[in-house]
């Protein structure tokens, strides 16, 4: 039995950080909660509105300028700070992940102060932009699903130019099997601490990785038990296809020809 039966999920500033379909994360959380009979409200809060108090905040990816603007707005938002202090879960993706950290680069590469909710620091990567399918296995340090179950492999699409370094206060979410992820020597992808999760995975990440969605829902509901199962037949078929596509070493020929 879950401890709470009401949830508010907020998609943060889709007008600034909504370029890569990441609003899907909020949609997935809301549907999966509703399927389980939870009274859930999903708010897409544009940057000119007041950010409502929420149980889960989803922050998406976007361009450099809007990323800086979003960090400014969130940094000065008492409602957001208060909700996080009281244990709201936060998911940051790509630009949204970077701004959760201590600092991230602006368009010119100069460091901008982040929210400091994750002990990570992002700099402009040396090489080319990382664009493509990303496959990663949950690290031993990754959060456990209820019942001590390990997160299954994470799959998604990355599209970024940053290298993110983890400090002691953050643990990697996963180990990269294919793709770049955080970049650097550790082959890690994403970071988490407390109830804050950051990742480079688009897809959207919670659509491709429903267990991660349920992890966030479990946190927000204060549930120690596994959540009731929902119909994931099509999701699992999609995952199997994507995992197989990432596992084959050569790029799909079909993706190269027009």
């Amino acid at each position: 039995m879950t401890a709470r039966l009401r949830l508010t999920v907020v998609t943060v500033f889709p007008d600034l950080l909504g370029t890569y379909g990441d609003r899907g994360n909020g949609m997935v959380l809301a549907r999966r909660a509703a399927w389980r009979g939870i009274d859930v409200s999903l708010v897409e809060a544009v940057s000119t509105d007041r950010l409502p108090a929420a149980d889960i905040y989803c922050i998406g990816g976007g361009e450099d300028g809007p990323q800086v603007r979003a960090a400014e707005l969130l940094g000065g938002d008492d409602t957001f700070a208060g909700a996080v202090r009281q244990g709201a879960a936060v998911l940051g993706v790509c630009a949204g992940y970077q701004l959760l950290g201590r600092s991230f680069p602006d368009a010119g590469g100069a460091p901008i102060r982040g929210l400091g909710l994750l002990d990570v620091e992002t700099v402009k990567g040396a090489g080319s932009r990382a664009v493509g399918e990303l496959l990663a296995e949950a690290s031993p340090t990754a959060p456990m699903l209820p019942g001590g179950v390990r997160l299954p492999p994470l799959t998604g699409f990355e599209n970024h130019a940053g290298t993110t370094m983890l400090g002691r206060g953050a643990a990697p979410l996963a180990r990269v099997v294919r793709g770049r992820g955080n970049g650097g020597a550790g082959r890690s992808e994403g970071a988490w601490s407390g109830r804050v999760v950051g990742t480079y995975l688009h897809g959207p990440v919670l659509a491709r990785n429903p267990h991660l969605a349920d992890l966030l829902l479990g946190w927000a509901l204060g549930s120690e038990e596994p959540l009731a199962t929902v119909d994931d037949v099509e999701v699992e078929a999609w995952r199997a296809e994507r995992l197989a596509a990432s596992a084959s070493r050569r790029p799909a020929w079909s993706s190269l020809v027009r």
Binding site: Y20, E133, F157, H202, G203, A207, S255
Partner: peptide
């Protein structure tokens, strides 16, 4: 476009 994330928009 190789990324299908846009389906969610």
């Amino acid at each position: 476009g190789l990324d299908t994330s846009w389906l969610w928009d």
